[in-house]
Every structure is written in C-alpha cells, then in structure tokens.
Design a protein around this nucleic acid. Structure first.
Lengths: 189, 189
DNA sequence: CACAAAACCGACCGCGCGGTCAAGAGTATT
DNA sequence: AATACTCTTGACCGCGCGGTCGGTTTTGTG
C-alpha cells in the first residue's frame, strides 16, 4: 500500500475554508466565483475541487463549522445568565465576521436537506437564548418570549453591519452595553 | 409628431418593479435571472428591457423607491417620540418585505456611485432614530448613542427574518412590545 | 529504491446568464 | 386614413460560470 492523506491535510482544508469564506463574504456567495476564490487562496481552482466536491459542499462546511463552534460556545455559557450568553455570542463572532455574514445571506441557497442540520443548530442557539430571557424575565407568554428572544438576536446579528473594528466601542464594551440594554428592556415589558 | 408614452406606463413600470422585487427577494438577487423574473411577471424578458435598461437599473429603482417611501414615513413620525418612529418603521415594512430584504442583501452589489444616494437615505433614517434615542435618553456619548441606535435598527431589521404573518404577535402588537423593550433598555444604560 | 497514491496545475467544456435585435401589433396624433 | 412611435415578442449572442480532465510533481510506505 502507498501513502495516505498528507499530515497537514486538515489544516489546508481549513485554510481553504477560511480563505473562501472571506472571499465569499466580501463579494457575496453567488457573485463570487470559484476561480476568484482560488486566486484569493493562492491556489488553482482544480485544487479546491481536490479538497471539496463542489462549491455547495464548501459552503456547507464553512457554515457547519461556524455554527458548530457557536453552539459549543453558547451552550458553555448556559447558566451564566443572559449577560454571559450575550458576551459569548459577540466574542464568538470575533474573527468570524465572514462566516457570520455568509450564514445570514447564503444559507438559503442550499437545498433544504442540507439546510436542515444548520437550521437545527440555529434553533439550539435560539433555545439557549430563550432560556436566558426566561430566567431574566419569567412569566412571559410564548409569543412574547419568542419575539423578545429574536429581538435580542436581532441586536447581536446586526452588530457586524455597523461596527468597524478599531472605531467606536470595543466588542467587549458593546457586549456589556447591549446586556444592560437588554436586561433593562426585559424588566420593562 | 406621434404618440408619447402610454397612459398606464408608470403603473406597468411599478408592477414590474413589484413583481421583480418579489422574485428577486425570493430567490436572491444574484441567483434570480431576468428570464425568471419576466416569467414571474407574466411578460417577456425583452419587455422588461423596454422599461428598464438593465438588471442593475431595475434593482436601483426598487431600492430607491422603497427607501424614499421609508424616509418620508419616518420623517413624518419625527417628534412622535421613539415609540412613534418604531411604529412607523414597522408599519412601513408591511407589504414591503421583499424590498426590505433586497435592500439588506443586494444593495452592496451596486457600484459605489449608485449606492451613494441609497446610503444617504439610510443615513437619514439613522439620524432620525438617533434623535429619538437621544430624546428618550439624553446625555449619552456619541459612541453609545450610535451603538444603541444601531441596536434598535437591529431589532427592527431582523423582524422579517423570524415573523410569519398570521402567526404570533401582530405587527402592531410587536411594535408596542419592541417600543416598551427599547424604552426600558434606554432607561437602564 | 520502487511505486502508488496524494497534491497540484493549465486547458478545456457545456450551460445559462444578462443583454440585443428585427419585426409585428396596437394606438394617440395630425 | 396615414403616420410615427410605443408596446410586445421569440430567437439569438458572447461571456463567464461551476465543474472536469490529463498530466506532472511530490511524498509516505513497503
């Protein structure tokens, strides 16, 4: 028998994932070509197809990785209160702006059966946040609990749209401000 | 000299805009083909090109129309407090989900010089909201004012992602809940 | 060392896209 | 009634896309 996968196979795959995620996020998944992504990664297009069977497979892996890490981090913050969850989410988004952006605008381009596991992960994130909201402000009916949970995610998911690293509040400072805002808001409804 | 534009020229153009907006929003601007949009509108592709010079022109007009109406409605709500502004925005989004979605994920595909007037309109929306935030909670430093203003837009802009018409809270009920939440939050920071 | 498979590339392919065009039908103006 | 222009279409075009292929180079293993 002969050689198996290279020792750095997984690292290279991960580098491709990261490079492609940045390129996809910058140009928009649909407009971004595989040729362009390959150039951005400094490799040939054919090499990407050596590591990934299709553009769709590559996208799926990027999103799966990202959401998996997010779920892990958020579940670890369970029980630290809503401030802990908010901090965890915002800190997990750091260095993952591209993946986050992709998740928001390219997930829908996957066929339903490939969306399913990703949507399931999103649902777990929502559930954890809903628990935290419920702990902070018990007694809300289901509709309001859901609406407020989604409003909190609205705040967090919108962050990347207006925040420019190095300008304005730091991520950590914003996390605390957002937590104050959310906690105060929950007290008022 | 002979005939000018048909009497219903503008209505037909508007119908095309609305039909195309729905189609674009449903499939994603980049994936959505002009052939598909034409079929969706029940006309030939060539006819769309009779009314619009290019796919990009069509997109621009959709967004320009939408943002123009939004600015109008929001400026009219100036002085009605932050609750009034929140209500105005959410009510303006009604029947404009497609346009709103397009604005969020296709504006960036326009060349910078065509983005400029649309971004200027967005900035006016932000300014009005910032004034309302400042009126509700005076004395915030610029960074916090901006962060909180954007957080409010995060809540509102995220609404279309999770709300399903006919399920859960009505738009009006949510507008009031969101206003309570925001006002309570501003009091707490 | 021998060698089989992995790692990598440039050239190529079919398809569907945005956009064009020549022509026919319809209609407000003279 | 004649006219000139809008309205509308199906057929067509060039291009760049996702993806493939045949080949060379590199490398772990027996």
């Amino acid at each position: 028998m002969a050689r198996g996968l290279a020792r750095d196979h997984d690292e290279k795959r991960a580098a491709l994932r990261k490079g492609a995620a940045d390129y996809f996020a910058q140009h928009g998944y649909d407009r971004a070509s595989m040729t362009g992504a390959a150039k951005h990664c400094g490799v040939s297009k054919a090499l990407i197809y050596h590591y990934y069977a299709s553009k769709e497979d590559l996208l799926f892996d990027i999103l799966d990785d990202h959401l998996g890490a997010l779920v892990e981090v958020v579940e670890a913050a369970r029980g630290e209160g809503i401030r802990g969850v908010i901090r965890a989410v915002l800190s997990a988004y750091e260095d993952a702006d591209s993946e986050h952006k992709l998740q928001l605008d390219a997930l829908a381009t996957l066929p339903p059966e490939r969306q399913a596991p990703l949507i399931a992960a999103q649902r777990r994130l929502v559930t954890v946040m809903a628990e935290a909201v419920d702990a902070e402000r018990p007694g809300l009916d289901a509709d309001r609990l859901r609406a407020l949970t989604m409003s909190v995610y609205g705040i967090l998911n919108w962050f990347y749209m207006w925040h420019r690293p190095g300008k304005g509040l730091s991520r950590a400072a914003y996390a605390d401000l957002a937590a104050d805002f959310v906690i105060g808001g929950l007290r008022a409804v």
